[in-house]
């Protein structure tokens, strides 16, 4: 903590962050401000009109379905974040310690899967999960009734796709954090009488926290913007925020509305992150005062 405070007073250090500051300003803050300004305009005959009024915001706050979609997006994102975080912990641990002999191969496979075009992977899932797809075919051949798994084109399929596409983020950040833990610390816990599980809970897990948090934040932010999964795997019948925003911008050519909805989504996401951050900070402080 002391070091952090000091770094703020270091002039040279502040100067060295200038390029980043300029970059962030150019590519993040300015577009954000433009988006905000856009939301106070209107559209007439598929053209932007500089009206400077609150019509779009009145519309946003009077239409329940926007909020319904936002709420659905938020809950999906939270569930996805939880699943990705919880699943990544044993996977990352197993990769590092139980399957360490194949860890390079596993990492390679994951990177390949990760870099493969998301569209292709998502269509792959459609072929796999379809009522007449690979999964049901296999199940049928071992005695299950036809179309035993009817999950495609449902919110559950959206979730499967989201978790599948976002899980690598949490696995990588968690594994990175875990790999940095000194092996001796775990041995010290085992030596002090801890079972494997206990050593994991007492040492590995708390020390991997930064990576777990980083992964969770990353996945949460990314899952707020998912587009492909609800559309392709979810069958488009439960659209999420990104689809709503796309529709506003593209189909309805209503840029002010799209801008306003974008801001709503950003605010919701930032608020959730702020609450989570405050909780984590409060917990850490309580922990240190214990």
């Amino acid at each position: 903590m002391a070091e952090m405070q000091k770094s703020w007073r270091d002039g040279a250090l502040r100067l060295s962050t200038l390029p980043l500051l300029v970059l962030m300003g150019l590519f993040f803050v300015i577009p954000l401000i433009m988006t905000a300004l856009l939301s106070f305009q209107g559209t007439q005959y598929y053209r932007l009109v500089w009206t400077w009024d609150l019509n779009v915001w009145t519309d946003v706050f009077s239409q329940i379905h926007y909020w319904k979609i936002m709420w659905r997006t938020l809950t999906m994102a939270l569930v996805c974040t939880l699943l990705c975080t919880v699943l990544a912990i044993p996977i990352a641990y197993g990769m590092l310690h139980r399957l360490s002999r194949w860890s390079d191969q596993i990492t390679l496979l994951m990177v390949f899967a990760f870099l493969t075009d998301a569209v292709l992977k998502t269509f792959g899932w459609v072929l796999f999960l379809d009522r007449s797809g690979v999964l049901n075919g296999t199940l049928e051949s071992i005695g299950f009734p036809p179309a035993a798994v009817n999950v495609l084109f449902s919110p559950n399929a959206t979730m499967i796709g989201m978790v599948y596409n976002l899980l690598p983020y949490t696995i990588f950040t968690t594994a990175l954090s875990m790999a940095r833990i000194d092996r001796d610390l775990v041995l010290a816990a085992r030596d002090a009488g801890a079972t494997r599980l206990r050593a994991f809970v007492e040492v590995t897990l708390p020390l991997a926290k930064p990576g777990i948090w980083a992964g969770a934040v990353l996945v949460f932010v990314l899952s707020l913007g998912v587009f492909l999964e609800p559309k392709v795997m979810g069958g488009g019948t439960s659209p999420l925020a990104a689809e709503l925003i796309r529709q506003s911008f593209e189909t309805r050519v209503n840029w002010p509305l799209g801008a306003a909805l974008t801001l709503v989504l950003i605010v919701i996401g930032a608020a959730v992150l702020a609450v989570a951050g405050a909780l984590a900070f409060w917990q850490a402080r309580r922990g240190s005062n214990d």
């Binding site: 001796d184 010290a188 030596d191 002090a192 009488g193």
Partner: peptide
């Protein structure tokens, strides 16, 4: 017998104190 059940305790070269 696993390390956790042994009547021994180790002092590690790099001490291995739990930083958290």
């Amino acid at each position: 017998m696993p390390a956790s059940a042994r009547p021994t305790r180790m002092v590690f070269q790099k001490l291995a104190l739990f930083p958290h």
